[in-house]
Simulated assay, not measured.
Amino acid sequence: MSGTGKRAGSNPGGKDDHMDATKLRSGYTTGSCAAAAAKAALIMMITGEDIYNVSIVTPKGIIYNAEIVDIKKSADNSEVTCAVIKDGGDDPDVTTGAYVYVTLRKSDKEGIRIDGGEGVGRVTKPGLDQPIGEAAINSVPRRMIKENLEQVLLTGKSDIKGLDVIVSVPGGEKIAQKTFNPMLGIVGGISILGTTGIVEPMSDSAIVETIRTHVRVKKAEGKEILLAAPGNYGITFLSERYKLEDGNAVMTSNFVYDAVRIALSEGFSKMLFVGHIGKLVKVAGGIKNTHSRYGDHRMEILSDIANDDGIRSELSECVMTDEAVRIITEKGLADKVFPKMAELIKKHMEEWAEGKIQIEIIVFSNEYTELVSTAGAHGFMEGV
């Protein structure tokens, strides 16, 4: 996942403020790898000589010195293939170690045409960066490839009229199963991504941009109600309780506020948010990002909602919210606490949406048991 938008609180250097930036190494996107391989292939096509290193300038202005591997050339040098090994730095990037190949072929047809080969996905749904049927090579990588090739053509002496560019990633179809591509309607492989050309370790912005892409897909599919859940627990709950398949819900991770703002910017007026109490109780307290680094406060929030000194000390000793649910239920406070919690979640999220989105809530607890829902939640569920 790649992105350029920064979460409020992130430092301008691009690394999250909770991380020690001096110990984290940035990497390079699949788009940078493809651009570097394309440039090297063209230099070899023009000169006839093998090269093993090439430099490009990424959109962020950082120079990428790429190592070129697995060079193959046709007898007449009209076709050249080479690869760059993807290095995602210290980011937990599933594409790290993948070989990003580019094959260049001379063409009598003027211009530069870019397509995907083995291991590069195809777009099957609207709302993505590329039209349906196109290779999932996003617009910035396409521009990087084209600009680097044009630069070489301008400085090199050649009679090349046109070029066909094929980007491939052997094993990309298997790698893609570990990404959001199947949910987004990208089939057959990974996407060639990157808006800055740089992979920033543990980048929150990359997650937010993935959420944005998924929301855009839902909008392009004509969905009137945006169904969202923080993660796999929510997806499993929706599958077991409501028989919904993977891909129906946008996964927001901890970025609840960001997801609401994205839904607003993409034009949604209705949203159904489904999650475990362990995440959503934080939202009841007005917490915008539910990651533990921003604070826990779950038991304090439940205690404040209960407004009962008799259970405050018991809740303060709880580690898990499912245990807190048991205590609140046994004390006969469930009908008071959980509906109020759900309304507070709804209230904060609708405020984040500037009152322009009707948001309904379903909260579940242990064993995927539905705990509480707001008044319009089940009506929304019928419409998703």
Rank of each mutant, 00 (worst) to 15 (best):
G5S: 07
A8C: 01
G9W: 03
G27H: 08
T30M: 06
S32W: 08
K39L: 03
M45D: 08
E49T: 03
P59K: 15
Y64L: 13
S74D: 14
N77S: 13
S78H: 11
V84N: 05
D87A: 09
V94D: 12
V100S: 07
Y101I: 02
V102R: 00
G117K: 11
E118S: 06
K125S: 06
K125Q: 13
L128E: 06
R143Y: 07
M144P: 00
N148Y: 07
Q151F: 01
V152S: 09
K161H: 05
V169A: 06
Q177N: 08
P182W: 14
G185A: 11
S191F: 04
I192C: 03
I192H: 00
T196L: 04
S203K: 02
A206Q: 00
I207E: 00
R212K: 09
A220D: 02
L227A: 09
N232D: 14
T236F: 01
F237Q: 11
G247M: 10
A249P: 01
V250A: 10
S253M: 02
N254P: 09
F268D: 05
F273G: 08
V274R: 07
I277E: 00
T290P: 06
R293H: 08
G295V: 06
S313H: 14
T321E: 10
D322C: 11
R326T: 10
R326G: 01
I327Y: 12
I327K: 15
E330W: 05
F338Q: 04
M341W: 06
G355P: 07
V363C: 08
G379A: 13
M381C: 06
M381L: 15
